[in-house]
C-alpha cells in the first residue's frame, strides 16, 4: 500500500495552482489528503500530477463578511471545530465536526477537500445543502464562478467542478434565526455514518413553524434535501407528532440502496429516526433561544 509515481508541484499562489491544474489531464489537488492519500496508497487513485495547495496562504483565510462567513478551502477541520467566529456564524459546523473521523484526521482534513470529495455519507456536504453554502471555484481559463450547494454535488464522489477547477472559497450564510441540530448513526465512533440527518428550525411566537430545513446524508448518491417538502410544513404547529411526520415523509421520499453495511430499509429507518430526533432537538433549542 504505497502511492504510485506522480509528478509533484507545490504552488505558492492561487495563480500557480490554477496553471498547474490546467497543464495536465490527470492532475489532482492535494489538500489535507485524508481521502486522497488512502486511495493513492491502495492505488485506486493514480494522479499523473499532484498539485499540493497546502502552501497557498490565501486559501487558509477565515473572513467575516457581515451576513456571510468566507471560509478558505484550506481551513482545516480542527479549525472548523474550534474557531469562535465559525461557531457564532453557523453553530452546526463545530457540532458536526465532532462527528467527523478522529482528532488526527481533523488536524489535516480541510473543508474544501471534504466538499470536493463529495462523499454523500460525509457531514460537511449535508451541512452545505442545509445551510445553502456557495462554492467559489477558480480555473485558469474560466476565471471564477460560484456554485450553490444544490448544484455542486453531482453524484457519488462527483461534483460539477471541471477537472481544471479548484474550490477556493466557501460562503456560509450566517444562521440568524432558530436553531439547528445534527444526528448521525455510525456503527463505531468516528466511522462513516450509515445515515446523517441535519435540521434547522425557527418558530413563530405562537410555536408554529417559521422556517424549517432538513437534509440527509448517506441515503443516496448525493446529500438529500427537498425544499418543496420543507415549505409544506411552514405555519404548522411544531410538535412531536409533526417531527415524526416529517421524519416519515422524508424517509419515504429518499431512495437508498442496499450495501454490505446496511440494507435500504435499515437506512430508511435510520433516516426517519435521526431526522425526527434532529428536528425535535432543533425545535427545543429554538424555543430556548427565543427566550422563553
Amino acid at each position: 500500500m504505497k502511492p504510485p509515481v506522480f509528478e509533484y508541484v507545490r504552488p505558492a499562489s492561487l495563480a500557480e495552482a490554477l496553471d498547474a491544474l490546467a497543464s495536465s489531464e490527470d492532475a489532482k489537488v492535494l489538500a489535507g489528503g485524508q481521502s486522497l492519500i488512502p486511495m493513492m496508497n491502495m492505488r485506486l487513485a493514480r494522479p499523473g500530477l499532484l498539485v499540493d495547495i497546502n502552501h497557498i496562504p490565501e486559501l487558509t483565510e477565515i473572513h467575516d463578511n457581515g451576513d456571510t462567513l468566507h471560509l478558505g478551502a484550506l481551513v482545516r477541520h480542527y479549525q472548523l471545530e474550534t474557531d469562535a467566529r465559525i461557531k457564532a456564524a453557523f453553530p452546526l459546523i463545530p457540532e458536526a465536526e465532532r462527528l467527523i473521523g478522529h482528532p488526527a484526521i481533523r488536524t489535516r482534513g480541510t473543508i474544501g477537500g471534504s466538499l470536493s470529495h463529495a462523499d454523500p455519507a460525509a457531514e460537511l456536504p449535508v451541512l452545505a445543502m442545509l445551510g445553502e453554502w456557495n462554492m467559489t471555484v477558480h480555473s485558469r481559463d474560466g476565471g471564477a464562478r460560484t456554485i450553490p450547494a444544490e448544484e455542486f454535488f453531482m453524484s457519488y464522489l462527483m461534483t460539477t467542478m471541471g477537472p481544471d477547477e479548484l474550490l477556493t472559497r466557501i460562503t456560509v450564510p450566517k444562521q440568524l434565526a432558530g436553531a439547528s441540530h445534527i444526528r448521525e448513526f455510525a456503527v463505531r465512533s468516528g466511522d462513516f455514518a450509515l445515515a446523517i440527518a441535519a435540521a434547522m428550525v425557527s418558530l413563530n411566537g405562537d410555536g408554529s413553524i417559521a422556517t424549517v430545513r432538513f437534509a440527509l446524508g448517506g441515503v443516496g448518491d448525493v446529500p438529500w434535501r427537498n425544499r418543496e417538502l420543507e415549505s409544506s410544513f411552514v405555519g404548522t404547529m411544531g410538535s412531536d407528532a409533526l417531527w415524526r411526520d416529517i421524519g416519515r415523509q422524508a424517509a419515504l421520499a429518499i431512495d437508498p440502496v442496499d450495501d454490505m453495511h446496511a440494507s435500504a430499509a435499515h437506512r430508511r429507518q435510520l433516516a426517519e429516526t435521526l431526522l425526527t430526533e434532529s428536528l425535535h432537538r432543533a425545535a427545543e433549542m429554538a424555543r430556548e433561544r427565543s427566550g422563553r
Binding site: V187, H261, A262, S263, A265, H266, Q269
Partner: peptide, 11 residues
C-alpha cells in the same frame, strides 16, 4: 448481530 442484521431480524 450487526445493527443491520438486527434490524432485519426485527423487521
Amino acid at each position: 448481530v450487526t445493527p443491520t442484521r438486527l434490524f432485519q431480524a426485527l423487521t
